[in-house]
């Protein structure tokens, strides 16, 4: 009886080994040696689709930076992917530096699926609470970035536009760009003086005066519209700056290797 049991266990072991779809060590070898074509052919050679295969394919697309396919396979293997701390760290390090679309997608994924003990999740939680509660980062740089981001969140585009309408460029000083304020004000003053001079000497109906008035009007409108959009963009800029430093910080802490 005992012999039969042993025999059965051995048979089962071999059967499992044979039916297993991918050899993890071989995938690791392909990944660490940068064998891109071989890697993808090996992963796509399997006819059946499974959670683990999606998980490994998702890692492959993360390594070779194919964002849309990465997310496609990530959502097909949520359970496995969200538990792999190496994948979560590497993706956080990478997607924190990407364009807004993928950054948002990744933050959403981490927020919904990743365990709260992971550092990436803790970082995302702090980000999500930026509007309200207190925050505490280990890094001074991140602390300062977070403060800047919170400051930028409070700035109102309409107020900036109104300020620029009163004094050209003042809206830019309001969002913290004092040099740009100086340049804008100086440009308006110089061109304003020139326009005034041309009106005084040549008369308002002169083509030169008409051109100058038109240009001054255009400059003034651009300054108001510019302050409005710059205030909006400033929020995103500070947010991405925080994410960039966050990415550096997480990388420094964990590295971005995908396989143990």
């Amino acid at each position: 009886m005992k012999k039969i049991k042993v025999y059965l266990v051995v048979c089962l072991f071999f059967c499992l080994k044979i039916s297993s779809q991918v050899d993890l060590n071989f995938v690791k070898h392909l990944s660490s040696n940068g064998l891109k074509n071989e890697h993808v052919s090996y992963l796509t050679s399997s006819t059946t689709s499974s959670d683990s295969l999606h998980y490994l394919t998702c890692k492959y697309y993360l390594q070779y930076h194919d964002d849309s396919l990465f997310f496609e396979h990530l959502y097909s293997s949520v359970d496995l992917s969200s538990r792999d701390c190496l994948l979560v760290n590497a993706a956080t390090v990478y997607y924190f530096k990407q364009s807004d679309q993928y950054t948002r997608k990744w933050i959403e994924f981490v927020d919904q699926n990743v365990d709260s003990t992971r550092r990436s999740k803790q970082f995302v939680t702090i980000l999500k609470q930026a509007d309200s509660g207190a925050f505490e980062f280990v890094s001074l740089q991140l602390d300062s970035d977070m403060r800047n981001y919170k400051k930028a969140l409070k700035k109102k585009p309409l107020l900036a536009a109104t300020m620029s309408a009163v004094v050209p460029g003042l809206g830019k000083a309001y969002i913290g760009r004092k040099r740009a304020f100086g340049i804008t004000l100086a440009a308006h003053l110089l061109y304003g003086v020139q326009t005034y001079e041309s009106i005084k000497r040549l008369g308002i109906k002169n083509p030169v005066s008409i051109f100058n008035i038109g240009m001054l009007g255009l400059m003034y409108s651009a300054n108001i519209y510019g302050s409005f959009i710059e205030t909006k963009k400033n929020k995103k800029e500070k947010y991405h700056q925080l994410l960039n430093h966050g990415s550096d910080y997480l990388y420094m802490d964990t590295g971005n290797s995908l396989y143990p």
Partner: peptide
Amino acid sequence: KGTLKGLNQLYSCFPGSIYERSEYL
């Protein structure tokens, strides 16, 4: 909108403007 945006960038086009922008840019 395009012209206004372009002119607005022109206001910030001076050597010291990089100090007012985020590092990653």
